[in-house]
Design a protein around this nucleic acid. Structure first.
Lengths: 147, 147
DNA sequence: CTATCATGAAACAGCATAAGTTACGTGAAC
DNA sequence: GTTCACGTAACTTATGCTGTTTCATGATAG
């Protein structure tokens, strides 16, 4: 099943925005991600509504961070994107009459809930600042290795 | 994103097969799941190849369990279905050149890996016999409550 | 032996959703 | 007032599970 890459993309953009002076246009961001400006506007809309970025129209306009990176976790961004479904597997029927199906759904739901709790906890403890720091570490390493 | 319900469906079927004397035809199974016989054959093929069920052609043919329920975990069934992607979210590019993207992907991959490990551990510790036992418990309860 | 039943498999259409595209409106800066 | 950039709607594309049709194969009943 095809995966939703919006979270990954938006995290990527937000770190770049932090390292960039002035506003970034949707066109520029789209070029960075090899995609389309409208897709960027559509996806960034959630982050804007959540207050993590702000947009400006007209000359010199574009997108800017509206909030320091250490105040935003990966979970915050996920939520801002509309809390999309995490799992690609799940039951068909949420309220089955069949008791067998109820038992199956309960077991699966338990397992998925537990896994999602771990994921949410993990995403909630990592901030964008942490990612930026990891980027800096990688940058220093790549400099040392000449790669 | 739409969810893959094959695991849920196959677990449902396997428990029913255990409680049923004789073979179950794809048509009968499809009727139980409100779907199509060809879909059943297609999905059951993986379970057959894994040795969890067997199929017989002709009069009185159909599907039977080939293995006791306590020998099969939910994870086994998941694997038999081709180990489909568990997560609906993920990165676009697996080998990005951009160091920011690498940092983002590493963080997300870590979180997803951890969550998947929890899910796999959970699915691997629950057997079909456990589900059947839970079904029996629900059956007894529903009888008591008159529901 | 033949008809019937049931699986096996290929081929194609349906459907949902992220993604890509086009088009037009709105507001800000030059 | 022209240009730039976002905002939004509408449409198309791509992908993968799902559903359906069709025919072949093999097993059983009569």
């Amino acid at each position: 099943m095809r995966q939703d890459s919006r979270l990954s993309r938006m995290l990527h953009v937000l770190i770049h925005m932090d390292r960039h002076d002035g506003a970034l246009t949707s066109e520029a961001i789209a070029a960075m991600l090899n995609t389309n400006a409208v897709v960027i506007r559509r996806t960034m809309a959630g982050l804007r509504d959540a207050g993590y970025v702000q947009s400006e129209k007209g000359h010199g306009g574009g997108w800017r961070l509206a909030c320091p990176l250490d105040r935003v976790t990966l979970l915050d961004v996920h939520r801002a994107l509309g809390d999309p479904t995490v799992f690609a597997i799940g039951p068909t029927d949420d309220e089955p009459r069949c008791l067998v199906e109820q038992a199956v759904n309960a077991a699966l739901a338990d397992a998925l809930r537990e896994a999602e709790a771990v994921l949410v906890r993990r995403l909630g403890t990592v901030t964008l600042a942490d990612l930026a720091a990891d980027f800096d570490r990688r940058l220093a390493l790549s400099g040392k290795c000449g790669a």
